[in-house]
Simulated scan of single mutants.
Amino acid sequence: MSASLPAAGLAFVKMNGLGNDFAVVRAPLDWSPAEAQVRAWGDRQAGIGFDQLVVLSESGEGPWVRFWNQDGGEVSACGNGSRAVAWLMMEAAGADAARFRTRAGPLAAARAGDHRVTVDMGPPRLRWDEIPLAEEMDTRGIELQVGPIDAPLVHTPGAVSMGNPHVVFFTDRQDDAFVRGTGSLIEHHPLFPEGVNVGFANVLAPDRIRLRVWERGAGLTKACGTGACAALVAAHRRGLTGRAATLELDGGELQIVWDADTDHVHMTGAVAVEGTGVLPA
């Protein structure tokens, strides 16, 4: 299958990163789809079906990449989507590295093997107002719990922004019903003025974490790249892991490293091309 980027217009390449799937489109920088249109395209019964729409554009500053969640809302960052579009860019250019801008800041990516990409996701944002939270708190463990006051089911999650807001609960309870129920409850909690992605992390060893993520605007997904980065950062800040770990997600594994010298988080994982098509009108 050709790895060429689609021509200008509404042609797309369908890709996934560990099952977290995208429609990647090349379009002008001033092109923005309507929320209702994104929802229709993303619908898995009536549309193409995807977790995110990824739009690659050219500008005088170089390539720009933008992301829309399945619910039609634009978001600043998407880790798996960044790996996917970086792979397409490297294939098209015959290169081993790619750089592009996002609303969360510039990103750099490099090949890490066959259909594997490492993305430098930049430094985590750790101040309460960077995430953002509605009030000042220690983001190593914020004042939030689910369940009875005297016996909460989960509590005191870490809060991290990787260009988009995350909270990470440390728990071994990761069944579908609990993740869906708790994630949907927390996603729009008033503590998070921009909404929040909700991670459920079970630390298996100092270098291994089992993670499930309820993604803001997309629901329970097979993998979340920024969620994996946030989980490693939150776990290390609590003294539960080192600065590097393998994150086990429903769709596969990501290797996450929080570099002590640069403060940048590096994410490595696989990408796959599923097919091509044209977005319906």
Rank of each mutant, 00 (worst) to 15 (best):
G9F: 05
F12R: 08
K14Q: 15
L18S: 01
N20T: 13
A23L: 11
R26F: 03
P28E: 05
P28I: 02
D30Y: 07
A36D: 14
V38S: 03
A40G: 07
Q45A: 15
A46W: 00
G49Q: 09
V55T: 14
L56G: 13
P63G: 14
W68S: 01
N69S: 03
N69R: 09
A77Y: 02
G79R: 12
W87T: 10
M90D: 05
M90H: 02
D96R: 13
D96Q: 15
R99G: 15
T102M: 01
R103L: 10
G105Y: 11
L107W: 02
A109E: 06
A110L: 00
R111K: 07
A112M: 02
D114G: 07
R116A: 11
R116E: 09
V117R: 06
D129Y: 13
A134I: 10
E136A: 11
R140E: 06
L144Q: 01
Q145K: 07
Q145V: 00
V146M: 11
P148T: 02
D150I: 04
H155Q: 14
H155D: 12
T156L: 12
P157T: 05
F169Q: 04
Q174G: 15
R180K: 08
G181M: 08
G181Q: 15
G183K: 07
L185S: 12
H189I: 12
P193I: 00
N202A: 14
N202P: 01
A205M: 03
L211S: 05
R216F: 07
L220G: 12
K222M: 15
K222E: 14
C224N: 10
G227T: 15
A230P: 09
L232T: 02
V233G: 01
A234M: 04
A234C: 06
A235G: 04
H236Q: 12
R237N: 07
R243E: 08
G252W: 05
Q255T: 13
V257C: 04
A260Q: 15
T262S: 13
V265M: 00
A272D: 12
V273H: 08
V278S: 13
